[in-house]
Write a protein that binds this DNA or RNA. Sequence first.
DNA 1: GGCATTTAGTTGATGCTTCAACTTACTCCC
DNA 2: GGGAGTAAGTTGAAGCATCAACTAAATGCC
Lengths: 158, 158
Amino acid sequence: MAETQWLSEAEQRTWRKLVAVLMKLPAGLEGQLQRDADISHFEYWVLALLSEAPDRAMRLSALAAQANSSLSRLSHVVTRLEKKGFVTREPCPDSSRSMLAVLSDNGYRKLVAAAPGHVEAVRSLVFEGLGVEELSDLDRACDAILGRIGGPPVPPPR
Amino acid sequence: MAETQWLSEAEQRTWRKLVAVLMKLPAGLEGQLQRDADISHFEYWVLALLSEAPDRAMRLSALAAQANSSLSRLSHVVTRLEKKGFVTREPCPDSSRSMLAVLSDNGYRKLVAAAPGHVEAVRSLVFEGLGVEELSDLDRACDAILGRIGGPPVPPPR
DNA sequence: GGCATTTAGTTGATGCTTCAACTTACTCCC
DNA sequence: GGGAGTAAGTTGAAGCATCAACTAAATGCC
């Protein structure tokens, strides 16, 4: 075991800030969606991903990858969303061991209803008051971290 | 209700990246600590805060504020840490409705034992390969967000 | 002094996440 | 073509977070 490479002063300061963001931002997002739409941020994200997919359907494993979640977590969430009537599970035509999650009309309406409040929250918690400069700082910072962490399975949008 | 101000293209791209970071980074940190030290990231953080406090003791509400957590969450965690023998609860001398969480020697040893692995994970998940430029991007980005979100209760270190 | 409010903390129920164990289907290949 | 191995998904148990309801101590104030 080599000597531990401790963080520099600057790294430590930045790390504390990042941890604070990691703790507080999710809580803020979660809170708004829970209060106003009775849905978790992760559920929202799943609905949003489905709404952008062709036929509003995706294989569970693909959905899990894009949502940065384990398959298990996703499976539980899809079960919940199914119970709420926002999604249905259907066997995948191509591969009989795969399953499709399909966004129902009801689910689409839910997403549309929840979106404005959520975007408003994102704006007010993050982007409002961020200049062009800071936006690109943030963008580069995320790129750098995602580079280390195993990049975003998010395909370049369009 | 005014028209929703949707996110610009650039904001949306950045937002997706940030969400990916928000999902993956905690999972990575959590995983390492759980595996190697059988402790959660939040528990680690609490031990670390206590270790820096005078007499290794803090009032629960102060600790909660610095850890960016609700008092309730903190109280539960202190109970767990107490059971593991890392912390004791003691009545606060100054104010009889306050409680102190005190880091035990055992808890201090635990922290010292867990630190190298954790720092190594932080380094490898975040800082390694971040140039000076990107580090300050990240720092500014965090500042900007924390400014919006209700700044860091983290006092300037020292 | 006595009542209302606020501050500090605790507790129990509920719900979500994780982990490990399991099933079922597909692939390789000999 | 029949196993060995892997890929996709499900499920149940255990642990942690959140919320609301609660106790108790301090403060304000009339």
